[in-house]
């Protein structure tokens, strides 16, 4: 994911604001990263480097924590967020097939964002409607009984709607 100059500057600035009122104890690192994610929606590389500088630790240690926990995003969220359920019921009903379909049509991996920032793909662990498995949440809409064909259809109708509104592809 290529960040703009503006985003890099913003990430470093906001991180400095957050760390300014914070001690340098290692235990404060995760709360700081959570605040960064709250403000920016993700934890970009410049923010990790800035946080590492504040705590006096190697940047790779911060990277290790960000990649360890599912709650942290490395890429900015897309305009539309696709969350594929990988809970027990959805897993049994082929949630991984739905995930693979999205990865294939969007040409990204789980946790990433398309280069045009239109879609980001996430996995969630149960959205609470297992009877409709496999389940998918697009933005705030829950869609049940997903199939790979439905994935293609959703993307197609999305592109069609964008075309009608004149959004450049």
């Amino acid at each position: 994911m290529i960040l703009t100059e503006e985003e890099i500057r913003e990430a470093a600035e906001k991180t400095r604001e957050i760390t300014a009122g914070c001690d340098t104890a290692r235990g404060s690192l995760i709360p700081v990263l959570q605040k960064i994610q709250d403000r920016l929606g993700y934890v970009p590389a410049p923010a990790m480097e800035e946080a590492a500088r504040h705590f006096g630790i190697p940047a790779v240690d911060v990277y290790g924590i960000v990649t360890f926990y599912n709650q942290f995003r490395l890429t900015p969220p897309g305009r539309h967020r696709v969350k594929v359920c990988m809970g027990t019921a959805c897993h049994m009903k082929g949630g991984n097939i739905i995930m693979e379909s999205w990865e294939r049509v969007l040409k990204i991996k789980v946790g990433e964002t398309t280069p045009d920032r239109e879609f980001s793909l996430e996995r969630v662990a149960c959205v609470g409607c297992c009877t409709m498995a496999p389940v998918l949440v697009k933005d705030e809409t829950v869609i049940g009984k997903m199939t790979p064909t439905k994935v293609d259809g959703m993307l197609f109708s999305h592109q069609l709607a964008n075309k009608k509104e004149g959004v450049p592809q």
Partner: peptide, 9 residues
Amino acid sequence: AGILGFSHR
């Protein structure tokens, strides 16, 4: 140089 670490889970 302190560049190595663990990542992912």
